[in-house]
Design a binder for these strands. Structure first.
Length: 441
RNA sequence: CGGGGCAUGGCGCAGUCUGGUAGCGCACCUGGUUUGGGACCAGGGGGUCGCAAGUUCGAAUCUUGCUGCCCCGACCA
């Protein structure tokens, strides 16, 4: 993409309304603009990141056997009355009335809707297990939205819903999502720690929050240091998942609300105690027959008897992750995107547009890299060098390729690693080879 | 929802206390000089001062009401 053809409104100064670093950087890097409290428009650069995250989430869901659907943002109130949550949900739920005075709501979540779809279409245990997910915008009328897209009222979420014939198979569905989540966050360039979470009225051990560590995190977390270097499991969903998950669930890891200092002290030696702040980016939850009972979601079992299905739900805050990743990946000059979610992998700076040699070499590099399937943002603007460098650092593309009039004469390209600042001057072939791969730390 | 704060050009702000017809920096446009980490000179465009009533000869400024946004707290992916 040539920058002169793009829409990238960067800001030199920090907008007054943004407090935390990810919010400031997202506004300054031209990724989002606020429309109303907790409601954002996604500009081209931000949308690219959102889509990349979405794609990785989708791939891993599919790999784990979940099937994608798409449910609407607006839902009829009746099914919420059926589950009993229309009254329970309170003012967080945005209620809307249409022209015929029918009660609608902007979905804060989709258990009711998916349960309705499932019960109307599935009659037999033979069609189980089943896990349906979608990636859709939600709305929760938060009392106090803040932190930019990390705590917005409108947010993009992946939510999956599993349906099983009994508790044992529901547990397996849960474990699959557990593995998928570990893999998803690892691929996004994040270290997300599964932490025991509140299971609500159901009880048991089947609820985990996935937390990424960041100083600006909303909750305090306590865990065993070894958890930090556990590699994500392979996507072998026919393996013994108990064993796959055990390394993650056996170590102490809790948020402040579940934290018990005595147990922490007893289970984790002093040199392994990690106390930090974290951002919740995913939550998986087993809820059994909570919705299937009141909503008559039943299938016939092998024994001919009807049973209400056992369910679980599994959320990932896709739009929140954009902010979360920035919280975890930035420095004083701007964002430092992980390779997998970077809006472009390479920022190409032509230091002197109009100079025949720099133009020619820049164009050649731009085309060569683009033809390799790489996403290149080519800064061909007639701006001063300083502004170009600053903008490029701000938007945080992993690689920067700088071509100036002096180097162009010799056919040289200066390649900078955004993360560690390493610069090297390379000839065309070497530059192309280097830029095609993720930079090393 | 309780407490605090803000609202003046695209962004950041001054002016409000003490009423006199709106200003600064950045950005933008034109011309020139510049050109490897946010240049300089000259000229220029752009503002119903959040909205509505009121007080006054006169309101960005004072009064009342409303709206929006931000921060702290209780709640959430």
């Amino acid at each position: 993409m040539r920058l002169t053809d793009y829409f990238l409104p960067t800001l030199k100064e920090d907008p007054a309304e943004a407090q935390i670093v990810s919010h400031r950087l997202m506004l300054r890097a031209g990724m989002v603009r606020q429309s109303a409290a907790g409601i954002y428009s996604w500009l081209p650069l931000g949308l690219r990141v959102l889509r990349k995250i979405e794609a990785i989430v989708r791939e891993e869901q599919n790999l784990a056997g979940a099937i994608e659907v798409l449910m609407p943002t607006l839902q009829p109130a009746d099914i919420w009355r059926e589950s009993g949550r229309y009254e329970d949900y309170g003012k967080e739920m945005l209620r809307i009335t249409d022209r015929a005075d029918r009660d609608l709501l902007y979905g804060p979540t989709n258990e009711e809707l998916i349960t309705q779809i499932f019960r109307d279409n599935v009659r037999s245990y033979k069609q189980l297990p089943c896990n349906l997910y979608h990636i859709q915008w939600k709305f929760r009328d938060e009392i106090r939205p803040r932190f930019g897209v990390m705590r917005g009222r409108e947010f993009l979420m992946k939510d999956a819903y599993s349906f099983d014939i009994d508790e044992a198979s529901a547990r397996l569905a849960y474990q699959k999502m557990f593995v998928a989540y570990l893999r998803t966050f690892a691929r996004l360039g994040l270290r997300a720690l599964p932490m025991a979470a509140d299971t609500g009225p159901i009880g048991g051990d089947l609820s985990h929050e996935f937390i990424i560590l960041a100083d600006t995190g909303e909750s305090e977390v306590f865990c065993h240091a070894d958890l930090l270097d556990r590699p994500a499991p392979e996507p072998d969903y026919s393996a013994d998942l108990d064993a796959v998950i055990a390394p993650f669930t056996s170590l102490y890891a809790r948020t402040d609300e579940k934290h018990e200092p005595q147990i922490f002290e007893a289970e984790v030696s002093a040199d392994k105690q990690v106390m930090a702040r974290g951002i919740e980016v995913g939550h998986i939850f087993y809820f059994g027959q909570k919705y299937s009972e009141p909503m008559q979601c039943r299938v016939t079992g092998a024994d001919g008897k009807e049973v209400a299905v056992y369910g679980g739900s599994y959320g990932i805050g896709v739009s929140r992750l954009v902010g979360g990743i920035i919280e975890a990946c930035h420095d004083e000059n701007g964002i430092v995107w992980p390779w997998a979610v970077a809006p472009f992998q390479i920022g190409l700076i032509n230091l002197k547009p109009g100079d025949a040699k720099t133009d020619k070499l820049s164009e050649r590099l731009y085309k060569t890299l683009t033809h390799k399937g790489l996403d290149v943002l080519y800064d061909n603007r007639d701006e001063r060098a300083g502004g170009k460098f600053s903008d490029m650092d701000l938007i945080g593309l992993p690689w920067q390729a700088v071509i100036g009039p002096r180097g162009a004469v010799a056919g040289e390209i200066e390649v900078k690693n955004r993360k560690n600042g390493d610069k090297q001057t390379l000839d065309f072939g070497a530059a192309c080879a280097l830029l095609a791969e993720p930079p090393s730390d």
